[in-house]
Amino acid sequence: MAIDGKVALVTGSAQGIGRGIALRLAADGANIALVDLKKDKLAAVAKEIEGLGRKATVFGADVSDRAQVYAAIDHAEAALGGFDIMVNNAGIAQVKALADVTPEEIELIFRINVFGVLWGIQAAAAKFLARKRKGKIISASSIAGHDGFALIGAYSATKFAVRGLTQAAAREYAAAGITVNAYCPGVVDTDMWDGIDKGFQKVTGAAPRETYNKYCAGIALGRPETPADVAALVSFLAGPDSDYMTGQAVLIDGGMVYR
């Protein structure tokens, strides 16, 4: 177990990709701080982690609020006796033509997807420096952070921003031994993609699952992505085998976008 005894915090871990990441890191030996607005769902994930023989703690937080992100990390350290890995996974999507995006909508998606990542980078790095420990910061970008996609332009912009933050933070914190990387999933069968599919239904008149199936048809490996697929990459980024890797936003999409 490459990260045996480490403490990892995963935002947006009540369901979907975040839950998958939390379970994989626990299976790899880490104790997990689960952070989400949906605190009622976190208890079930915590039980799953404890069933793997690892410790878990839950904390309700809105990642768009800087103070709450700092408080979540303080809680993780106090409850689990350390802090080693930060996974900025929480995020939201939006389906809307760029011409129709409102100031309130663009502010909301940036506050969660970009500001939330920035606060997570700041808070995690500050904690690593205070503890005089090296650490891992891993954030959620997307294939939409490599290619801009029609009707999810605001979302794409946030995920491009995550790549920029990742590169800049990697350079700023390298001397302290803190690595900063991102993972870029494609079409993952989660509640978020259900929401995206419903958004396309509303905007384009597509039938239920039509958009989801259309994008899945473009996956070279021939199947939709699962949270476990994403979690496998995050596990690598969290472990010692990636110690010489920083500033990267790695595609994990089954072969949709090529760089």
Rank of each mutant, 00 (worst) to 15 (best):
I73H: 03
A61H: 08
V101S: 01
A56F: 01
E48D: 15
A126W: 02
F83S: 04
E48M: 13
G120I: 06
L118C: 00
I109K: 02
F83G: 06
Y70N: 08
K38F: 14
T102V: 02
E104Y: 03
G51Y: 09
I121C: 12
V101L: 09
I112W: 03
I49T: 05
A72T: 06
V87A: 05
L80P: 02
G81W: 06
D100Q: 13
K127A: 11
G60I: 09
K96L: 13
F83D: 02
G120H: 10
A61T: 09
E48K: 13
A44T: 13
R54F: 11
N113L: 00
I106N: 00
G120Y: 10
I73G: 01
A67K: 09
A61P: 07
G82D: 11
G82F: 13
Q122N: 05
Q68F: 10
I106F: 02
L37C: 04
G81F: 04
K38D: 15
V117A: 11
D84I: 02
L98N: 02
I92F: 07
I49Q: 06
T102N: 00
A46N: 07
K39S: 15
A97F: 03
Q122W: 02
V95K: 10
L37G: 08
D74M: 07
Q68W: 10
V87C: 04
A67L: 11
I121P: 06
L37W: 00
D74T: 14
E48R: 08
E77R: 15
A46W: 08
D62E: 12
A97G: 07
G82H: 14
I73S: 05
E48L: 12
G53T: 08
F115C: 05
V114N: 03
G60C: 11
L129D: 08
K96Q: 14
I85M: 06
Y70H: 11
V114T: 15
I49K: 02
L118S: 02
K55M: 12
A78G: 07
F110L: 04
A72E: 08
R54L: 10
K127N: 12
I121M: 12
K96W: 04
A126Y: 01
N113Y: 00
K41Q: 14
A90L: 11
A124T: 11
Q122P: 04
A61Q: 08
M86G: 00
G91Q: 01
D65L: 15
F128T: 01
A56M: 01
A126R: 12
L37T: 08
K39T: 15
G120K: 08
A123T: 11
A124V: 13
G51C: 12
A43S: 14
I92K: 05
L108W: 05
V63G: 02
E104F: 01
E50V: 02
G91N: 05
V117M: 09
E105I: 01
N89R: 09
V95I: 14
W119H: 15
N88F: 04
G53L: 07
V45D: 10
A71W: 04
R66D: 13
L80N: 03
E50H: 03
V101T: 09
F128K: 02
E104Q: 09
